Every structure is written in structure tokens, then in C-alpha cells.
Computed example of a mutant assay.
Amino acid sequence: MATPNERLRRLRTEKPSLADPARPMSRAELAELVNLHLWRTTGRRAALDADAISRYERGIVNWPSKTYRAAFRAVLDVTTDAELGFYPSPRGPKARPDTADDDIMGWLQRASSVDQTTITTMAARTEDIRLGDRGQSSVATSQALKEHLDVLWSLRAYSLEPSMREVLASVYSDTASLAGWVYLDSGNIKEAWRLHEAAKDAGRESSARADLAHATAQQAYVLVDTDQPQYALRIAEHAITVGATALSGPVRSWLHGVAGEVAAIVGETTASMEHFDRAVALLSGDTRDPDAPYIMLDEYSLARWRGAALARLGDEEAIADLHFALSGMDPNHLRAGAQLNVDLAHSLVAAGHTPEAVQALDTARGLAKRAGSARQKRRIKNLQSRLGVQAS
């Protein structure tokens, strides 16, 4: 009878869960972290899952391959195999080492078992991360997204069923776009661009037309943050044509909102207002599209967009728009709250209301610090420099 590996089990349960730090790390989480480490360090796509970890903890497998043992040591912060409870069996030859062929066959088998329940679970995980991102730092969100994307990539890459590949591509595109936005917010421009490219690539295979348009439009903000607003506007306006009239009203409204904001950054007043007028017209009725859960647009967020555009264009009407948007904002949305207060500060500066602008920046700074938003911190610092306010 196999001897249970209590050392490995104890090391796992002493680690906090990534999803809920109040609970111990699950076998599935440990498997994903080991798979991720192997991919980063060796380029191999490993196929460990909760069942494999269970076999290790039950002692059925007590001497994994060298690369797997190294990955376990790194993930569980130990230096020796003995600390993991791994040792060569004295009873005959050791277990056959894991090979690249095993990995491929394992993922092909896992991908072949993907069904609608799996898709729903994966999409729900993306949505959970998105909702959690509103009230936590970019660092915590990015770690969860890395692990989730790695599993999604493998399932999609090894899926042999075209219809399932399309649906997996849709979930992957959504998740990669979310990750791209989180990395942009943390100040990692290169990774933000790469992830948006990955999202667009998946969007081309996706069963949902909105995925490609969404990833394309959102990528415009990466160009805005690299001081290339003219190219950003071209991308944002191109995104509107990607799905044309086949997209839902909320999605098309959001696309015009992006283009309107970027046009304002460029200084094209007429184009900006035309896009926002179109966005308002398209948003009438239902404001959610079940096929595009990443589009969360209502009258308050559209008012924020319009207010941000007007602020950049020096229109005092922006102050009323932004105060209206703040009145309808969930206080738990830290990053969005920071952005909205920076936008308000811009409008107040343009209107000559410096004391109120400084107050808005103080609020924004506190929210940006809690959210770990490098992007909003940079915007705050730039505006403080214009005002001659010392950063704190």
C-alpha cells in the first residue's frame, strides 16, 4: 500500500488560496501553478491537474521527473526534494518520467472532454476575476489572470472540435483583453500590447463577433499611453467597422464611446461629439449584451466618457457630467473611481477652479493607491505638475 505524502499535502495547505486567501490552496491551484512554472522555465505545456496532485499526495507517485520536482520546489518555496516528500522508490524502477508526448496526449485528452459546462465554468472564472479586479490591486488580478489564461490557451490549442475551439477562443479573447487592460493599468505597456494582440488573434477565431472589435478598440488606449493618439484614433474608428451593424447596440455604443474619447485627446472636437451622440443613440433600451459581458455601459459611464472628452476640450459642461457620473458610481470600483476623479480634476482646471481640482486629485490619489494603478498615478502626477502641487 502506498504511503501518503503528508509533507506535500502540508506544504500545499499552508499556502493561501489565490481565489480566497482565507482558505488553503487547492490541488487544482497547485497544479496550475506548477504547469505555469514549467511553461515559463522550459517552454513545455504541462498537464497536471487536481487528480495528479491527489496521486502525489496519496503516495501513488513518489518520484516525478526532474523538471516537475524543480517546479514543485519553486512553487512551494523549498530547496530539496525531501522537503516535498519525494524520494526514489526502493521497490523496483522509479515511475516513468513525464515526457513531452505525455503532456501533449494529456492536453488532447483534457481538451476532448470540454463541454458546455466547462465553457460556462471558464467564463464564470473570467467574470469573477473581472469583478474582483474592481476592488483589488492590479498585482493580485494579474497573477490570477496568468494562471487562467495558461489553462485556456492549452484547452484551445489542443481542442480538435471546431465548434468548441470557437467558444474557447471567445473566452480566451475576453480574458486576454481583461489581462491587457490590467497590465496597462499597472504600467506594463509591452505586456499590455502583447495581450491585446493575443486577444485579437483569438477574436478572429471566436464565435462572437464582438470579441475582435472589443480587443481592437481597447488596444487604442495602449497607444494613447505611449503618446501616439493619432494612431489610437485610427484604431478606435477601425474597430467600429469590424462588426458593423451585426453587433448589438450596447457594444456599438461602447465602440463609439472609445472613439469619442480618443478623438477628444487628439483635439478633434466635432468628431468627438459626433461619436458620443451616436453612442447615446445606440445605448437606448437594454444596456447589457449577454454575449459581450465585458461591455458594462450605462448612462453613468457614458456620462463619464462624455465628461472626460469635454474636460480635455475645455468645456465647463464637463463638470456637471462628471459629478453626475460620480453620483452613480459604486464606491468599490477603485480604479474607475480614480480615473473619474482625475477626469473631474482636468475639467476643473480647464474651468479655472483650482482648489476643487486639487481636492479631486486628493481623492483620486487615495483610490489609485488602493487599486495599485500606475496609470492613474501617472495621470495624477502630470496634472499636479501643471498645478504646481507637490506630490505626496
Rank of each mutant, 00 (worst) to 15 (best):
M164C: 09
T226L: 14
I235L: 14
A192Q: 09
A213G: 02
P250Q: 09
S253K: 07
T216R: 07
H196N: 14
D211F: 04
L168T: 01
L168A: 07
G260A: 12
G203M: 09
A264K: 02
R234K: 15
A169W: 00
A192G: 14
P229F: 03
H256Q: 13
Y183R: 14
V242P: 00
A202I: 01
V171P: 00
S173V: 03
V242F: 03
G267F: 04
H196P: 03
R209C: 02
A169E: 01
I189G: 04
V258Y: 03
R234V: 12
T216P: 06
A169C: 12
G203A: 11
E237W: 06
V258H: 07
V266H: 08
S207E: 11
V182W: 01
A210E: 08
P229G: 04
R234W: 08
A210S: 15
A263F: 09
K200Q: 15
E261R: 10
S253L: 10
G203E: 05
V222L: 08
R252W: 09
G180C: 10
R165V: 02
V171E: 00
A169Y: 01
A208D: 12
N188H: 13
Q219D: 12
V262C: 07
A264D: 01
E268C: 09
E237C: 11
L247D: 02
M164S: 10
A208C: 13
T226N: 12
A169Q: 02
V266W: 05
G187P: 06
P162V: 02
S248G: 11
D201G: 12
L195W: 01
L212W: 05
Q230N: 14
L233G: 07
